[in-house]
Amino acid sequence: MTVTDDSIIRLRGVTKEFVRGGERLRVLQSLDLDVKRATFQALMGPSGSGKSTLLNLMAGLDRPTSGSIEIDGKRIDQMSEGQLAAWRANSVGFVFQSYNLLPVLTAVENVELPLLLTPVAANERRRRAQTALRVVGLDDRMDHYPRQLSGGQEQRVSIARAIVTDPLLIVADEPTGDLDRTSADEILTLLETLNENMGKTIIMVTHDPAAAERAGVTLHLDKGRLKE
């Protein structure tokens, strides 16, 4: 574990337990982790190793049973639910395995969605959403509904939605899991570009070693512990 001053994410003694059928399951065990700013890191591990749980904790979707989580100097484990929602809106971009676009909204409306939580005016929201779609190469698909797009294109829209608020951190949960090899490569290239050219910090959970190779750093989790 490397501890440095330019860490954007700092986890200390993070433990996460779930109760299933009356039994207490410890998914993460006293975990310490520092993630450097502007790095692209892959999180790998077998099923049940706790990688998705760890991602959820870093994204502010869940809370640790014990330990502290500091993101860009803020203790998100101490935030109220409302504060955490507001923090996510400002600080985290999400890329989901199944894209999670709202099917009744067009591509540009989906990308605009996170901006509704910011004080940005309507015209500016639309302009920023269009810019984000241009960044991911979908300027000719702005008014298409998700059902009119291919899987790769949907994931690009999802990435545009993740970057439109210029977040501190992008979390990607198996972003290539539902895609063919070519589309997966395109998405990974896009994530690399966001990291290298725009300085975005990206944490990506993946099962795919080829995808993990594209990240600068790969973390391995096993039975709730990080392996060197």
Binding site: F94, N100, L102, P103
Partner: peptide
Amino acid sequence: RREIGTLRALGFSR
């Protein structure tokens, strides 16, 4: 359910 979860993840309040 997933749509609603997504809205919550994006930061929309309860």
